[in-house]
Design a binder for these strands. Structure first.
Length: 724
DNA sequence: AGCACGCCGACT
DNA sequence: GTCGGCGTGCTC
């Protein structure tokens, strides 16, 4: 199996003098084997380990190379030179020669194969690789950054999302910064005392959840938070309870604004030094310093945005996500993991508690409760009634009948509520962002039009023909499944102008705006009109007196499966900033009162809404009950990919359908076809339980195609977002 | 992706 | 004979 006169670092075809074994036992020599092709003998560059001995103990380093290519999604073994023995510990960053010809010898010099980054995952006594091992080039830094828990998590995430381990590690481990590493991290503080329940008392099982956490338990809960400003403190208490048990805690929020609020609440409750804030707002050095403090165990609690979901918290006791319906919880880099899914994996893997909190409720959260994986953590009706504002609706029909309203494009009831509200404080006006693409819906009852074959959304690209966005089949003689109507409509209204007109109608009142470009954090409690797009609503001192939610139809008819859920979430977010109804808080939503999300807002019942959506999705074969994946790329490439792919037996193929060409002038986004190419998207759907099989099949097909050298890649996305 | 190896046609 | 075309396959 091995010929003993070969040693890396020695000349290839050298005589006995050249190849005389240096120090090192026969078991080390056995590592270095004849290459299959014959007389070629590996040869290290002088600066690596030429002539050097191997490490005496565990001379093999198993390395994950930092190349996201799928058919390289495997470990590679390297020899550990003696002088790297001490530093080459599991978890450190290394550099290795990698590439065809890395073992080729010319003029007694090893050549080819550039240096690439990797992580050392394990030291071993021997290798199961049949060829000759190359040596580690060097250890980048002795800091161990990839522990066994993180490795297992990254592996699970890669499998779940049909991605490579290296891709996930790139999301999980921040780039190195030498200065940050050279600084010592602070001494860890002893666990704090268990916190009092505080406002968790408002939830029937709130104090019990906290007590279980503090006692070292691992409860899992979907928490429907009461509207109002209480959530940061409540999350802070959950973190404190986990810390009190001697374990760590991790909370992921959607954006820096909310991270700052939670940061403040934690500092108020626990003081400085017990938690790290991991957001993109701090620069790379500071961020890495914080990350290292967590990795080294100096800090045991983490608050952060998306990428903090991988933070290497020691002895994790609690993972929590706030507002899981916010789209920024979905990573925008391959393989596009979602914070909720990653934290679920962590909770299962590390046996820790799980808390999903939101004032609203996603279908996925409802499914966690329905499946029994998590328990509901909600307040009673009386608490909800006290905390939530009064919600009134104005339908489009009312708008049409109301003479004055038609002129001003606002129903008179909305006028009254605004006028009344301005007497006692600020009034919030929520206006949908421009660019919301409404979906085709029944003219009579507004039910979105769906394909009768696969239940995909219908569209009318040329105004005449109806086709399905999922399977591409034409829809002839469409009629509404709900009311039997045969006419469709899709209107677009200048929503922003409505708000501006509203501002002009109250000239004595200051108008402030908050939106994409300039987001206001807070406004004073004085009377003012605050016009905001969803998600940018400032907090009002003392709460808003009233809120006006305009053009609900535009939010409800977006071509997205989550349109209803999203609209409800954004309404609830805005309405949560309004005073409770006992204090006169009133919300007017301009939308069809019969629609499910509108009714859920009136009853303030986001959980019921999500439960009914979940039942519908199960019936129609939609995610998250079924698992879906999209395959996108040039038409011929998608075709070739699908030809290679071995589908799970229970998989359904929808499409392919051509992708819309992006409007000229705008820079092309990833996933959009370049000019002159026709791209297609095929959707794959499998029933519950076959998700892992689907991901594995996609990955295998991608690897097979890549190995064949094609530069023509398809984009694979598990749980695609824009499929509605 | 790179990069080398291998098995075919036109040149000194 | 042998230089070099780029098709195919490997990278510890």
């Amino acid at each position: 199996m091995s010929s003993e006169d070969e040693r890396p670092g020695e000349p290839a075809a050298g005589g006995p003098a050249d190849s005389a074994p240096a120090a090192g036992g026969p078991e080390q020599l056995a590592l270095i084997r004849e290459t299959v092709r014959g007389a070629k003998v590996p040869k290290a560059k002088p600066r690596t380990w030429r002539g050097a001995a191997l490490a005496k103990e565990l001379p093999v380093a198993r390395v994950v190379v930092n190349k996201g290519v799928l058919h390289l999604d495997q470990y590679f073994d390297y020899a550990v030179p003696e002088e790297l023995d001490a530093e080459a510990r599991p978890g450190v960053r290394v550099r290795v020669r990698f590439g065809a010809g890395a073992h080729r010898v010319r003029d007694g010099r090893r050549e080819g194969g550039g240096l690439i980054d990797g992580f050392l995952v394990e030291r071993r006594a021997d290798s199961d690789y049949g060829g000759a091992l190359a040596a580690l080039a060097y250890v980048v830094s002795p800091e161990p950054v990839l522990g066994p828990e993180m490795l297992a998590l990254a592996r699970a995430v890669a499998d779940r999302y049909a991605g490579s381990l290296a891709d996930v590690l790139q999301l999980a481990i921040p780039p190195r910064n030498g200065r940050a590493e050279s600084r010592p991290s602070p001494e860890p503080l002893p666990p704090p005392p268990a916190p009092a329940p505080g406002s968790w008392e408002r939830y029937a099982s709130g104090p019990a959840f906290l007590a279980a956490l503090a006692g070292g338990g691992a409860p899992r809960a979907v928490w429907t938070a009461l509207p109002g400003p209480g959530w940061p403190e409540e999350l802070a208490r959950a973190v404190a309870a986990a810390l009190a048990s001697g374990r760590g805690a991790l909370v992921v929020v959607p954006d820096g604004r909310r991270a700052a609020r939670l940061d403040a609440a934690l500092t108020a409750l626990l003081g400085e030094g017990r938690h790290a804030l991991l957001t993109a707002d701090s620069g790379p050095e500071k961020r890495y310093r914080q990350w290292l403090a967590v990795s080294r165990g100096s800090v045991r609690a983490v608050v952060g945005t998306r990428s903090a979901m991988f933070a290497p918290v020691r002895a994790l006791g609690l993972v929590a996500i706030w507002d899981d319906g916010d789209s920024s919880h979905s990573d925008d880099r391959a393989p596009f993991p979602h914070v909720r899914e990653v934290l679920q994996l962590r909770a299962a893997q590390e046996g820790c508690a799980f808390l999903l909190g939101s004032t609203s409720c996603t279908v996925e959260a409802a499914q966690l409760v329905e499946s029994g994986w998590a328990r509901p953590l909600a307040a009673g009706r009386e608490q909800v009634r006290r905390a939530a504002p009064l919600v009134r609706t104005v339908g489009d029909g009312d708008l049409a009948r109301d003479e004055a309203a038609r002129a001003a494009r606002l129903p008179s009831m909305a006028w009254q509520v605004v006028r009344e509200g301005l007497k006692s404080g600020p009034v919030l006006v929520q206006v949908p962002r421009r660019g919301y693409a409404p979906r085709l819906a029944c003219e009579r009852c507004r039910t979105p039009a769906r394909c009768r074959h696969c239940s995909g959304p219908l569209e009318a690209p040329d105004e005449r023909e109806l086709t399905c966005r999922w399977c591409g089949l034409g829809a002839v003689d469409w009629h509404c499944a709900e009311c039997g109507g045969t006419r469709l409509r899709a209107r677009v209204v200048g929503a922003r102008r409505t708000a501006e007109e509203l501002g002009r109608a109250f000239p004595a009142v200051p108008v402030r705006t908050s939106g994409r470009d300039h987001v206001l954090d807070a406004v004073p409690g004085r009377p003012a009109l605050v016009v905001s797009t969803p998600g940018a609503e400032p907090v009002a001192e003392g709460g808003y007196a009233a809120a006006l939610l305009l053009d609900g139809w535009a939010m409800l008819t977006r071509p997205d499966l989550r349109a209803g859920e999203d609209a409800l979430r954004r309404w609830i977010d805005a309405a949560s900033l309004v005073r409770g109804q006992d204090d006169g808080g009133t919300v007017v939503v301009v939308a069809e009162p019969t629609l499910r999300p509108v009714q859920a807002l009136v009853r303030w019942d986001p959980t019921g809404h999500a439960r009914r959506e979940l039942a519908d999705r199960a019936e129609l074969g939609f995610p998250p009950v079924s698992r879906m994946a999209s395959v996108t790329g040039r038409a011929d490439v998608v075709g070739a990919f699908m030809a290679v792919m071995r589908l799970p037996a229970d998989a359904e193929v929808l499409g392919p359908v051509p992708l819309p060409v992006p409007p000229p002038g705008r820079p092309r986004r990833p996933g959009e076809p370049p000019v002159g190419e026709v791209w297609e998207r095929t959707l794959l759907r499998v029933p519950p339980g076959s998700g892992a099989e689907l991901a594995a099949a996609l990955k295998a097909a991608q690897a097979a195609r890549l190995a064949r050298g094609g530069t023509d890649q398809v984009r694979i996305r598990i749980d695609p977002l824009d499929i509605g």
